[in-house]
Computed example of a mutant assay.
Amino acid sequence: MTMHLSHAGRQRLKLLALIGVFIGPLIVAWSMVEWRVGIPDERVAHGQLMPALPNLQAWPMQASSLSLGPFDWVLAYDCAMDCPAIADRWWRLHRALGREAPRLTRLRFGGQTGALPGEIVAQWRARPAWSHEGSLWLIDPEGQVVLSYRPYHEAEEVLEDLRHLLKMNPQPALAIRE
């Protein structure tokens, strides 16, 4: 049994197909956002955005010498116990940056050991409520905290976020160090 559509029926079918072509992608996009299906993980930072944290210059710290360049990113971390192991972990991450390593300075709070290469050691004057043992912060060249990580976060995820941020924020050509 064959079905013959009238001219009006064919026109309605064409209109429904045209509406489907334009509405279909909207429905698919909405469902992807609503149920987080098909969204690439590499576009999501592993750390937590912390815009409420104060600027680095307002942190209650005592530093021997906090001389940062105008284009330096800072990896700040708090360690009181097992500090040599934690400092070594972030030193290795720093080395893994390769040619981008000079753009990063590590700022360590606590510990009794001396500073590793590329690291500044500071002490809290009074530990702020937002700082916990093992906390880690990624700070932009203007001193704003970009990302905060839970204590003892995976170094590979921090490295991935850091590489992405350095790639998205290239160093100006005039600022390249000799």
Score class of each variant (00 low, 15 high):
153 H>Q: 09
100 E>G: 08
97 L>E: 04
33 V>G: 11
2 T>L: 06
31 S>N: 14
92 R>T: 01
15 L>R: 13
27 I>K: 01
30 W>R: 09
104 L>T: 07
22 F>N: 02
107 L>S: 10
59 W>Q: 01
160 E>W: 05
49 L>D: 12
6 S>Y: 00
129 A>E: 12
141 P>S: 07
21 V>C: 15
128 P>E: 09
90 W>D: 03
51 P>E: 08
45 A>V: 01
84 P>H: 02
59 W>L: 03
119 E>P: 14
107 L>E: 07
105 T>G: 03
81 M>I: 09
80 A>C: 00
151 P>D: 07
94 H>F: 00
60 P>T: 03
45 A>L: 10
123 Q>I: 02
106 R>M: 13
62 Q>E: 14
95 R>I: 08
148 S>M: 10
117 P>N: 07
98 G>Q: 02
105 T>L: 01
129 A>N: 07
27 I>S: 09
146 V>W: 05
112 Q>W: 04
64 S>K: 12
9 G>W: 00
126 A>H: 15
118 G>V: 09
67 S>I: 09
59 W>T: 02
119 E>F: 04
171 Q>Y: 00
85 A>L: 04
18 L>R: 15
122 A>F: 11
105 T>Q: 15
153 H>P: 01
116 L>N: 11
17 A>G: 14
100 E>T: 10
5 L>Q: 12
119 E>L: 06
128 P>T: 10
117 P>H: 04
78 D>M: 07
178 E>V: 00
16 L>T: 07
163 R>H: 07
68 L>M: 12
77 Y>L: 05
88 D>T: 02
81 M>S: 14
72 D>L: 06
37 V>K: 07
132 H>E: 15
145 V>N: 07
149 Y>I: 04
98 G>Y: 06
131 S>R: 12
13 L>F: 12
106 R>C: 03
152 Y>E: 15
63 A>S: 13
44 V>S: 13
85 A>W: 01
6 S>F: 00
70 P>M: 13
49 L>R: 10
163 R>S: 08
36 R>Q: 07
50 M>V: 10
